[in-house]
Design a protein around this nucleic acid. Structure first.
Lengths: 202, 202, 202, 202
DNA sequence: TATGAATGAGCATTCATTCAT
DNA sequence: TATGAATGAATGCTCATTCAT
């Protein structure tokens, strides 16, 4: 069924084109024509693959976060010790977003922005940022608990600490989106990870 | 004689109404009529006080950040030791944004969003988020250096560490905007501040 | 009744202020606030004297044309010979509009413009440009007939010739409004009057 | 494949629809919806062909005058004697505007009106009525000079006479716009042309 | 399937007019 | 009487979406 493959590929092309424009201009200021031009197709053609701008946005969101969730899941499944897992998760999360020159990080702004506001049940089905963060928090919290149990981490409120760690990671991303020249993401992540692990370890 | 009106007060009222709506719906999706209704006035009346929606937004931005900058300046001027100053700055920054029930924090999203994208010289005059963050980074970096010199802080890359600290604070704010139920801001700040000070101190 | 006199004077002041602005910017682009500022009064005060912008415009119209009609009437009543009367009427008409530095001639544009379009019965009562021109044409036509009868003018279609003469006068005004530097109104009138009288006289 | 449309033809259709409405209501009072309805299309469609109402107006202006300028240029290039050329130019000018039942003459009012007021450099580029009239004056002045040189015209101030002739032609147009019933344009032109040529010839 | 021409709902902004003081 | 603060109807223009080809 070669047609199907083509369709999927083209849909993905459109979504990538859209992500680039979203990242640069913001979703609201992105016009369908901008996406079409970026994708090198006609304005009407987009509607052969997506029902609306919102749907493209939702797809971009899902794709971004499902990748990250898979990554985190894989790391979490591994048999490494809690410290290594935590370190790997933090580094991988940052890498996932900074990767590829950071062409898409601008879109995070809109993910967050939508995340705050969208309470529409229908949208929440495919676009529940809070649920995603909750999963993320649970994973980290569990690793922290694991570390406490095995005696390598201090006693702490694991849920709260997980929140603070995630906050720090997102904050790093946010700062870097605002100005890419202030720090090297890898170096900053290094400082961040070390600081937290220092603070957490016995 | 016409009605006597405290123009400044009314302008502030409109801005506050606008901030509430901005925070809830986002700037782009906020209609002038929404602001008017929130402020309990007619749509046209807004234009007696502001030239455009953009101007209201700029005013909201300036007000928010000038308050924070003043606060930080005051703390920085004090004769406290570096650790206390750093702790106070971090706590005050967070407090400033969480204060008042956090009714306005949603607008941060738009400040950041604009901050990424607006490269217009005219707008940058009143709306230069990067400059504001640079000041902030310098203040913190200087305090860190002060601490290193006086032997209470470890050796470190002060600019980078300052960036990471600010990132963590903004990240906390961001997480809290996304979901207010996951942590108590004060507790989280406490964890954050302690973790960082632990990591920084000799 | 001094109050009445004051009222009348102030009403005239407003109308004169309005005429200046109308002449410069055109009626549609003139804002009430422009008129108020020109008159040195508050915006609301205008409505103590006029019900609407349209009413000011109508008043300006009437004033302008009644003056001209009076002037023409006076000349026509005189016992001069037809050639002198015709010459005087042509010169006086031009003078009336060019007079005072031509500050108000720009408003003619709007009189004509309204004259074309306004078919509203209510407005036509006070603003019937066609009727005014018809009177004017009759006066000139009668003088021409008088001249024919007394043997000093050639045979001609007096109504048509009257129309052509009036057209030439208005055309001169129009050209001068468009660019005041191309000719001196008095010289041009001289050429015009001489050309026509030459053509008309036996 | 999308609908194939003769873009140029449709643009012209819109402009003609606009001219009719402009002529009837005046440019300022013409709403985009009026033009759309006249053209039998949707409001938004106009913007596929023109960027703004102002641009339609500018196009209408250019079209009207470029036709007339071409016409005059052609006549001027001919090898006819000065009297014939002058007569032809005068008659053609009048014909050009009265032609087609005079559906568009009302728009002249707005051309003149804009001509007085618009000093904006950008607009003057495409809309310089004074320059157009200056060209026109030069053409007529040159013909007059030609006639003087070849001994068939009297001595005169050619620039001034040219102005007066143009004024008379525009005046005729103006009068006819105001009331189409007062004269037959061709008859009136005949009277006008004869009167002037009589006055000019030796 | 691909396209872009066509569309109209929607919105920022203007301004004549009202009216409380 | 004089004023200017308040207002909302009106309008130019944008852009997501539709649909004829």
């Amino acid at each position: 069924m070669p047609k199907i493959v083509d369709k999927e590929a083209k849909k993905r092309d459109i979504m990538h084109a859209a992500m680039e424009v979203f990242a640069r201009k913001g979703v609201t200021k992105t016009k369908m024509i901008d996406i079409a031009e970026k994708a090198g197709i006609g304005k009407g053609t987009i509607y052969e693959y997506y029902r609306s701008k919102e749907e493209i946005f939702g797809d971009a969101f899902m794709m971004t976060y499902s990748q990250t969730e898979d990554l985190i899941g894989d790391i979490n499944q591994s048999s490494d010790d809690p410290e290594t897992k935590l370190r790997q998760i933090m580094e991988s999360t940052v890498n996932a977003f900074f990767h590829g020159g950071g062409d898409f990080v601008g879109i995070m702004m809109d993910f967050w922005s939508e995340g705050i506001r969208n309470k529409d049940e229908r949208i929440l089905q495919i676009f529940d940022l809070n649920k995603i963060y909750q999963n993320y928090r649970t994973v980290i919290s569990d690793i922290l608990q694991e570390g406490i149990t095995s005696g390598i981490f201090k006693e702490m409120n694991t849920q709260l600490t997980a929140s603070v760690i995630i906050a720090a990671l997102d904050g790093l991303l946010l700062q870097w989106i605002l100005d890419r020249n202030i720090f090297d993401p890898r170096e900053a992540t290094e400082v961040l990870v070390n600081t937290y692990l220092d603070g957490i370890k016995k």
